[in-house]
Design a protein around this nucleic acid. Structure first.
Length: 622
RNA sequence: GCCUCGGUAGCUCAGCCUGGUAGAGCAACGGCCUUGUAAGCCGUAGGUCGCGGGAUCAAAGCCCGCCCGAGGCUCCA
């Protein structure tokens, strides 16, 4: 946008005739305005709402200096050879006018699209005549500037697709017989041909709301989620569980900052190798970005760490709450893809490829175990192996051994060129009810970053060397685990099975329903017995009908429900409504406790995050 | 980011085409009922119709812009 700004004693103008068909309606009458700043304005290609505001803001600052509060916006095409389309230009001129009026400036506007006659008298002082050029919003420029090199590379990336069988055979994907491997077929199609069959909303979204697990937070940015008490409990338990597993495997847990200097030399370089869009933050003169993984913090830490081959593999772990990736708005969805998420991130620094491979296998098995105990078995997800052609040629047996451990055919993606900082990567992918795939666990062999971050270890001969770095998320994003569990439950429901979460993740494990007020006290005693054994129990003491309370417990996916009346008060044997077994089983309270303990063994425990008596609970949703 | 559809009570949605005093069910609250394994009955309260602008005597409804969500496209280390 170009503006010729003139502080005038007066201007007189008169519309003569329309110049273009879409000119505004106007009276062919002369108009005179006095003591005014006239803005001869040309709207250029690329100008927008924001440009209009910026222009007025600049003018406004100037008006304050001149102690004038009256302007005339006068469309004047002759200032530019790069004009915007008239329709666009008129819109922008109008929004300038609106914005100026908002700011309390007495604003006039000459009609757009007319041939006009004018006479003007300009004041003589030094600031009376000025010319302005307002660039279309800088955000747009930044965007184009800061798309990382890796994102650009990815656009050119060419992949070759195979199915790697457990026996080590690589079959081009189009020749593979997918019978009995329908999920893998869906996954392969998703990855390769980008088929999108779905018409519906992802089932986990209504579920996460109805079960009071999580919800959108419109007060934040898309993909930043709010977690209700039940959801927070589930998420927290998974976080604790994964962390415990990684520590058991031998990693050292650390904590690092969530934001980093955009212009730090190592980081800037890494950003360019990592295809993610960042949240950028300005603070005084510094430009910061929010981390999208724990890599930076851990690398910067290990850079300053003294270690030798004797300490290796050196394993460092952090649960990032949060990692941020500014995914494109159209792809942020439910808990599947977020802009802020919690990701366990574990790096292993290895001396050489042999050690790296061994470590890789250990972690591969660890990841299968983690998902399994989380409630996702190998039938629930598919594996992909991705590597460069060179790496595969040199390490065929090793690559095949991974498929053998997985014991199911695996999708293989091969690149001729090393586009990324890794040479080998695998990921486990959950295929959901829309036939969309989402990566959970992943691990990769990084051959570049040790050098970039100047990370060295001392070898047997006392020489400094760069290690190989393995990057692993043993479960993938925790939110995504919840998504996978909900989608899996929905699948079960479609098959006619009762949908539910694993018992150790169920917010309420046992619900006790008193027949009437008389039985509440007895229920409380029962609840105490169970609580002492670290079982989450609540009591539905509301004065609703029994049937209604059972219905609600079932809709909450409570695994065990006990109704307590006269008979139960008198007997040790209780009728326990077992969700999974879909029926009432007679057992003693102790037997039930033992059964639950068995199912939750080795898993973290947290107490009920809500009032024990349901009559005291608020309703977060619905 | 682009295209399409949507946003009305805490929730799920009707009303919008064809402008004229804002509706239902569920939930909440009050009361009755004190229950035998998936929805008991009566009543009360609850709404800037996503936000902003425009045309109109008059807008939830028509027009424009924006925000949010979903589906598709694209993309996913």
């Amino acid at each position: 946008m170009r503006i010729l700004q003139l502080h005038s004693n007066y201007i007189e103008y008169k519309p003569i005739q329309k110049e273009i068909t879409m000119a505004e309606e106007a009276e062919k009458e002369a108009k005179r305005l006095e003591e005014i700043v006239v803005l001869f304005t040309a709207i250029e290609e690329g100008d927008n709402e924001a440009t209009a505001r910026k222009a007025i803001d600049e003018v406004c600052a100037f008006l304050e200096k001149l102690k004038v509060n009256r302007i005339l916006i006068y469309p004047y095409a002759h200032l530019s050879s790069n004009l915007a389309k008239p329709s666009e230009a008129l819109k922008i001129v109008k929004s300038m006018e609106a914005h100026a009026k908002d700011k309390g400036i007495e604003t006039y506007r000459a009609p757009f699209g007319w041939n006009k006659q004018f006479t003007i008298s300009i004041k003589g002082h030094p600031l009376a005549e000025q010319s302005r050029v307002i660039q279309p919003t800088e955000t747009k420029e930044e965007k184009t500037e800061k798309v990382s090199e890796a994102l650009k590379a990815e656009e050119k990336l060419e992949s070759f697709w195979y199915i790697l069988q457990p026996d080590g055979k690589m079959v081009p994907v189009e020749e593979f017989d997918f019978q009995g491997h329908e999920n893998l077929e869906k996954f392969a199609k998703y990855e390769i041909s980008k088929v999108r069959a779905s018409q519906q909303m992802p089932p986990h979204v209504p579920l996460m709301k109805r079960l009071e697990i999580a919800d959108y937070e419109t007060g934040s940015d898309p993909g930043n989620i709010r977690w209700y008490p039940k959801g927070r409990l589930i998420k927290s338990l998974i976080e604790q569980y994964v962390t415990a597993k990684v520590i058991e495997y031998g990693a050292m847990e650390v904590e690092t900052p969530v934001m980093y200097d955009f212009h730090h030399p190592s980081l800037a370089d890494y950003l360019n190798r990592f295809p993610a869009r960042q949240y950028i933050l300005k603070s005084e003169d510094k430009e910061l970005f929010l981390r999208f993984a724990a890599c930076f913090g851990q690398f910067l830490m290990v850079h300053d760490t003294q270690f030798s081959y004797k300490n290796m593999p050196l394993r460092v772990y952090e649960l990032t709450r949060y990692s941020f990736r500014r995914e494109k708005s159209g792809e942020v969805v439910g808990l599947r893809r977020l802009r802020a998420f919690t990701m366990p991130d574990c790096h292993a620094f290895c001396t050489d490829l042999e050690q790296a491979k061994e470590e890789f296998i250990t972690r591969f098995k660890l990841c299968i175990e983690v998902l399994e105990e989380l409630g996702l078995s190998r039938e629930d997800y598919e594996a992909a192996l991705r590597f460069t052609k060179d790496f595969y040629e040199e390490n065929k047996n090793f690559v095949a051994s991974l498929a053998k451990i997985f014991d199911k055919p695996v999708l293989a993606e091969m690149w001729k060129e090393p586009f990324f900082y890794f040479r080998l990567k695998w990921d486990f992918n959950f295929v959901d009810n829309q036939n969309k795939a989402a990566a959970l666990s992943t691990d990769q062999i990084d051959v570049e970053n040790a050098k970039r971050y100047d990370i060295t270890y001392v070898d047997e001969k006392g020489e400094r060397k760069n290690p190989l770095i393995l990057h692993c998320s043993p479960s993938g994003a925790i939110e995504r685990c919840v998504y996978a569990l909900l989608e899996k439950a929905y699948k079960q429901q479609q098959k006619g099975e009762p949908p539910m979460l694993p018992v150790w993740l169920s917010p309420t494990q046992v619900r006790i329903i008193p027949m009437s007020d008389k039985h509440v006290e007895h229920c409380e005693k029962m609840a105490e017995t169970l609580e002492k054994q670290q079982i989450r129990v609540d009591i539905d003491d509301r004065s609703l009908t029994l049937q209604k309370r059972i219905r609600e417990a079932e809709m909450e996916w409570v695994p065990y429900i006990i109704v307590v009346g006269e008979k139960e008060a008198a007997s040790e044997v209780l009728p326990v409504r077992d969700r999974k077994a879909r029926g009432i089983r007679k057992m003693k309270l102790e037997e039930l406790a033992n059964e639950i303990k068995k199912q939750t063994q080795g898993k973290p425990f947290k107490p009920l995050p809500l009032p024990k008596h349901i009559s005291k609970r608020p309703q977060f949703y619905g």
